[in-house]
Amino acid sequence: MQRVNMIMAESPGLITICLLGYLLSAECTVFLDHENANKILNRPKRYNSGKLEEFVQGNLERECMEEKCSFEEAREVFENTERTTEFWKQYVDGDQCESNPCLNGGSCKDDINSYECWCPFGFEGKNCELDVTCNIKNGRCEQFCKNSADNKVVCSCTEGYRLAENQKSCEPAVPFPCGRVSVSQTSKLTRAETVFPDVDYVNSTEAETILDNITQSTQSFNDFTRVVGGEDAKPGQFPWQVVLNGKVDAFCGGSIVNEKWIVTAAHCVETGVKITVVAGEHNIEETEHTEQKRNVIRIIPHHNYNAAINKYNHDIALLELDEPLVLNSYVTPICIADKEYTNIFLKFGSGYVSGWGRVFHKGRSALVLQYLRVPLVDRATCLRSTKFTIYNNMFCAGFHEGGRDSCQGDSGGPHVTEVEGTSFLTGIISWGEECAMKGKYGIYTKVSRYVNWIKEKTKLT
């Protein structure tokens, strides 16, 4: 034993070699072989497995989906700052455009905790909710729209109204504003409101030439003092309507412009014939205590009207009353817009006519005020429907199939267009061939041609 100890002390290297040989010859039971080890760690190889990531292109799944990435790591994937920024906006807080917040056709661009709407022409605001041009839906104005110097929408209202708090709607500024039905039992019968379409306001006024200088022999019209197929109006439903009495009662109609003036057809009036105007009328054979009678003290036909040349060209006249009318729910003026808007309103496509005229061709006159909704007829169809001249200051309205029309005794009465609950004068009943005849239409004086003249002559002093 002493000898062994001496050998170990003198030859430590020998001992180490012996131990190493023993270990190498022993069977290893701690580690699995290569094949079995792979069965336990069965993990798919990654895209760049075996390579240094710093030297390969980034992978979106590896960089940002398996674990949260930084902007720089995302930049490695896209290799483009702009594309990385677009991805980053949604990656950080989701897609803010998912709810489609942009209105009126706006395009949404996502941002971090926010979004941006790219608005089409005519709109602005956070969600493109603000109209900035009158060309689109009248700028959301209830009545009139004008573009300011910086191309912003400025709404306005006709006389007797003021802008509401929203700067879009119009509200009454006087007790009985024009064009409004205020009798409670008839307010439910107000005709369907007309909503502004998209309009090209630059070209809204037709490029028409008034044929002022045409000389033409007097034409022989049949029954051209021209509501057939209409309905009984309720008291106060058309408070701007008046009836004219002269040699015979209810020979023509008219509309209240203001307390002192009536507008009617020029062919209705004769110099030297006494005319009485009755406002607030409903049943011409009954006294309903809503009527107001006034005498006409002055007749002003349009300066281009000449019955000797043509009885229905420039067929418009103004009547001055001896005493002002007292405005109330049964006696209310009709609204008159400017030339541009009167023309736009007419193009809405349908209007209402009213009167006490004959209820059928050569038949009896109506006792109760009649009204009828009539569609506008395109000019080409209008011209083809008659052998008589249709001037540019006239328009056609009615039904091709016949059966409904204005008729004798309705002449001078109103053709009105309702705009968001307020009625505007767009025409004056003038003439036609018979009444409600198939293929024939009622012919009306186009008020847009005469609004400046009306307003100039009827100013209240």
Score class of each variant (00 low, 15 high):
residue 3 R to F: 10
residue 6 M to C: 15
residue 6 M to F: 13
residue 12 P to Y: 14
residue 21 G to C: 07
residue 26 A to M: 05
residue 27 E to M: 04
residue 28 C to Y: 02
residue 31 F to V: 15
residue 41 L to I: 14
residue 48 N to V: 07
residue 48 N to I: 05
residue 60 L to D: 07
residue 60 L to M: 15
residue 62 R to V: 04
residue 65 M to I: 14
residue 66 E to T: 06
residue 66 E to K: 06
residue 72 E to Q: 15
residue 80 N to G: 15
residue 82 E to W: 04
residue 87 F to L: 07
residue 88 W to H: 15
residue 88 W to Q: 15
residue 89 K to Y: 06
residue 91 Y to I: 14
residue 97 C to P: 01
residue 97 C to G: 01
residue 100 N to M: 07
residue 101 P to D: 01
residue 104 N to F: 02
residue 105 G to D: 04
residue 105 G to T: 02
residue 107 S to I: 03
residue 108 C to W: 00
residue 115 Y to T: 02
residue 116 E to F: 09
residue 128 C to F: 00
residue 131 D to N: 12
residue 133 T to G: 07
residue 138 N to G: 03
residue 142 E to F: 03
residue 144 F to R: 00
residue 149 A to E: 14
residue 149 A to F: 10
residue 150 D to H: 09
residue 154 V to N: 06
residue 158 T to M: 10
residue 176 F to P: 00
residue 176 F to T: 07
residue 178 C to P: 01
residue 182 S to A: 10
residue 185 Q to K: 11
residue 186 T to C: 04
residue 190 T to S: 12
residue 190 T to P: 08
residue 191 R to N: 12
residue 202 V to P: 14
residue 207 A to L: 11
residue 207 A to T: 12
residue 210 I to P: 07
residue 211 L to Y: 08
residue 217 S to Q: 13
residue 218 T to M: 07
residue 220 S to K: 12
residue 222 N to P: 08
residue 228 V to N: 06
residue 228 V to Q: 13
residue 231 E to T: 14
residue 242 V to W: 01
residue 243 V to L: 07
residue 243 V to R: 11
residue 245 N to Q: 09
residue 250 A to K: 08
residue 251 F to K: 09
residue 251 F to L: 09
residue 252 C to D: 00
residue 255 S to F: 01
residue 255 S to L: 04
residue 261 W to H: 02
residue 265 A to M: 02
residue 266 A to R: 03
residue 268 C to K: 01
residue 268 C to F: 02
residue 271 T to C: 05
residue 273 V to R: 12
residue 273 V to M: 14
residue 275 I to C: 03
residue 280 G to A: 03
residue 281 E to M: 12
residue 281 E to N: 06
residue 285 E to A: 08
residue 293 K to V: 13
residue 293 K to E: 09
residue 294 R to I: 02
residue 310 N to K: 05
residue 310 N to W: 04
residue 311 K to M: 07
residue 316 I to F: 01
residue 317 A to I: 02
residue 317 A to D: 00
residue 319 L to W: 02
residue 320 E to G: 03
residue 322 D to L: 02
residue 323 E to T: 14
residue 327 L to I: 14
residue 332 T to H: 06
residue 344 I to P: 02
residue 345 F to E: 01
residue 346 L to C: 02
residue 347 K to E: 08
residue 357 G to F: 10
residue 358 R to E: 11
residue 365 S to D: 12
residue 367 L to N: 13
residue 368 V to R: 11
residue 370 Q to A: 04
residue 374 V to L: 04
residue 381 T to S: 05
residue 383 L to I: 09
residue 387 K to R: 11
residue 394 M to G: 03
residue 398 G to M: 05
residue 398 G to L: 04
residue 403 G to P: 15
residue 405 D to Q: 14
residue 410 D to I: 15
residue 416 V to D: 00
residue 418 E to W: 06
residue 418 E to M: 14
residue 418 E to I: 12
residue 419 V to T: 05
residue 420 E to C: 07
residue 421 G to F: 04
residue 422 T to I: 14
residue 422 T to N: 03
residue 433 E to K: 08
residue 440 K to C: 09
residue 441 Y to K: 02
residue 444 Y to N: 00
residue 446 K to Q: 05
residue 447 V to L: 08
residue 451 V to P: 01
residue 454 I to Q: 00
residue 457 K to V: 10
